[in-house]
Design a protein around this nucleic acid. Structure first.
Lengths: 164, 164
DNA sequence: CCGATTTCTTAATCTAGGTTAATGGTAAGC
DNA sequence: GCTTACCATTAACCTAGATTAAGAAATCGG
């Protein structure tokens, strides 16, 4: 019996479109071909917190094979073209998939340490260096929501920096 | 040719012992049989930030197959008995290993969201609920370093809470 | 092209948590 | 057992960032 190929279809979405809602089971993995996505959560006070941005080439979606409901909302920030991949337990076990996860883990580890040890300004500058193009493409308030500060605080930080 | 079994030896360490130093390559994975470990980093200002605690049954060690130097120090907080496991790329690819990683990823994701959205008090109470026994076993200053606050601030938080 | 909505900035005020420092308590080394 | 070092607590003060508010600028829908 032949192996079933990985199911993977293309999806075009308009700017603003919610691709995956919080609480949905049976979540999928999205490879960004063109455009820009973000994943975020909303806390009890109604505030949005951006977990990650995903420009071209990036992959979004809880990498959870366990059947837990998604805790994050995924949304298109620009008209985008995505590759939708069903989660496939068989594929999970590949060394390649494992390495990708391990790398992702390291990124999150660094982000936690960052949240604990550096100021908003330093986090902003790090973001700026890591994703130079995103600064122009992402609205400030979402960058603030990624950095863990308010848009007002980000505006202040940016203002201060210009004086140097 | 027969499969080589996973190399795994037992290691006994005294309280305070540094098991893995920051910057070391060829890092291993430690399963805690008895005792308590922590992994932490030191920032530019010399402050310690606790990444995780590992009581009995827990596993510590960067899950990175890529050869990156460890960014964390691992230390025994009590006299401990560990199972040391060499990293084995073959083992990496198992669905079981993958699921464990995915779960870990979810924990980190929640921790990031937590750092961004809730107060020190709420983080402390969450820690208290999640690891009720650890509160007694771990020095306050390390709990503070896990929560991302100073020992003084933690003391304040605990004091305020008693009045309720 | 135009009104409406959303986003960004600035400024005044407020607050959680940081910093510094002093004190008493607890554990560790000899 | 004593001494030295470390740890927790308290208190006075300070600062980064939150909150609130209001105006300017950009974006959107038609």
């Amino acid at each position: 019996m032949a192996e079933k190929p990985v199911t993977s279809r293309t999806l075009k979405v308009k700017k603003g479109k919610i691709i995956q809602q919080k609480g949905e089971y049976n979540s999928k993995i999205y490879v960004v071909r063109k455009g820009l996505l973000r994943s975020y959560s909303i806390d009890k006070k109604g505030r949005e917190h951006v977990f990650m941005f995903a420009p071209e080439g990036w992959v979004v979606g809880d990498a959870i094979s366990v059947d837990e409901p998604s805790e994050l909302v995924i949304q298109a920030l620009e008209d985008s073209e995505l590759l939708v991949r069903e989660k496939d337990a068989k594929r999970d076990g590949t060394p390649k998939g494992f390495a990708a996860l391990a790398k992702r883990l390291l990124v999150l580890q660094r982000r936690i340490m960052m949240m604990m040890s550096v100021t908003a300004l330093e986090r902003y500058e790090h973001f700026e260096n890591t994703y130079p193009n995103l600064i122009q493409r992402v609205p400030q308030k979402m960058i603030a929501a990624y950095l863990g500060i308010t848009p007002e605080a980000l505006s202040k930080v940016r203002g201060q920096r210009l004086k140097k």
